[in-house]
Design a binder for these strands. Structure first.
Lengths: 229, 229
DNA sequence: GCGAGACTATATCGATCGATTGACATTATC
DNA sequence: GATAATGTCAATCGATCGATATAGTCTCGC
């Protein structure tokens, strides 16, 4: 079987590009609120204003569309985190930074995570939070890759820093525990945080800074008390 | 239409009681791993070793079964938390406890939450964690009630204590933020915690205590540094 | 302006879902 | 042991799902 040279490329023209983007945006919102199985391709097509076969046309299958959504979020997350992750790696490789700098880098990382949760002036902030909560309960090849990316770009730099702060290897169990707990302080806002407890219908920049300030205080307090044993 | 006086009661006899319990257990595991829409009544009936109509017979509908599962978990959670929640309420009503006692009570509450996540020697610990993560993304009349229960029995006592520690009203935004973050340190273990980062295939009692010890240190460190402003 | 490729529309397929029917088996009660 | 209540069973219904077949429209290069 000879493969055709000029394969057709969905979304290569103007009209198709718009349609493809519209499907992707709607799928992001619908998958976030209803999940992969809960979101039907029919309501998705209707809400996006496209035909039912358009999903198969542009993304191959419903699963392919889900993959595309996850990869988009993963890329967005990596783009925001990667620079700091690289900076941390370089600083730690250069030697032993002073304690104050280690804590500062850890706080900077959590700042970015917080700003990711409350993605400023993004209309899909709510979907973003819901989707982050969903990857915990929808095991998948795509979501697994996203989790790996988050572990590599967020958790691993944190454990590296905390390992230095506690004078323990990065894969030490206590180091991993503390890293997870500190990240958990930010991750809690993916769930019933903003909607049910805090009644934040609008997320102002001041509120995001408030969250970042509090988590900074917690981190600094923790590593002012907890030192290498 | 006259209502019959002697309504039939599914599960009132020995055999039916066993069947009912078997369905409930299997539903707990299946809903936890596959979600409400992902879990089909057919695979559920097959795995529980019962017929397909047995679900409607004992629980009215699939949704009724889901409700029963959620209520069972909610009751289990309330039974573990309620005594301490009441103790905290009484102590705070009596006056202003010393700072040390406030922190101790907060740590005790988190101890219980941790032990709930890692429900010792329970065969369904994995399902428990998954289900706790699911209620964040599966809005429902039943899950909403469970969230309300968790807010009332866990979050509210924590905010009450933290309000005293910071000399602020319990509904102060900074108080609620700190309470959520502290609980988030425990809640993080519902997700990719035990399985992907820590590679805990078995959860020993020592590991649970390790988590409790670390979170105690964090709480004590936070309120050693952060005081009323 | 015409033909090829890019894109959209209608109708429908097979599979699976939750729920129901109606008959049968078991158990309790008198 | 007869009768009614309780529990189980195979068969099937209508609805909805994801995917496809097929035909039509639009756009751009020549």
């Amino acid at each position: 079987m000879v493969e055709a040279v000029n394969r057709f490329r969905p979304g290569s023209q103007q009209r198709g590009e718009d349609t493809r983007r519209r499907i992707l945006e709607t799928a992001f919102e619908l998958f976030a609120s209803d999940g992969f199985e809960g979101a039907s391709t029919r309501t998705l097509a209707e809400r996006a204003g496209v035909n039912l076969p358009a999903i198969q046309y542009y993304f191959g299958s419903k699963e392919g569309l889900y993959r595309a959504v996850v990869e988009q979020i993963t890329d967005r997350m990596e783009a925001r985190v990667a620079p700091l992750a690289e900076h941390i790696r370089v600083e730690l490789d250069a030697g032993q930074p002073p304690r104050r700098q280690l804590v500062a880098m850890l706080c900077d990382m959590l700042d970015i995570v917080i700003s990711l949760m409350f993605d400023e002036n993004a209309p899909d902030r709510d979907s973003q939070q819901k989707f982050f909560a969903r990857i915990e309960v929808e095991p998948n090849a795509a979501t697994d890759a996203m989790q790996d990316s988050m572990i590599r770009h967020v958790l691993r730099p944190c454990t590296a820093i905390i390992g230095r702060l506690l004078d323990r290897p990065p894969d030490d169990e206590q180091v991993k525990l503390r890293a997870m707990m500190i990240i958990g302080q930010a991750k809690i806002f993916c769930g019933w945080g903003t909607s049910r407890v805090l009644h934040w219908d609008t997320v102002s920049e001041a509120r995001v800074r408030a969250v970042q300030t509090v988590i900074r205080e917690h981190i600094e307090a923790i590593f002012r008390s907890v030192r290498s044993s």
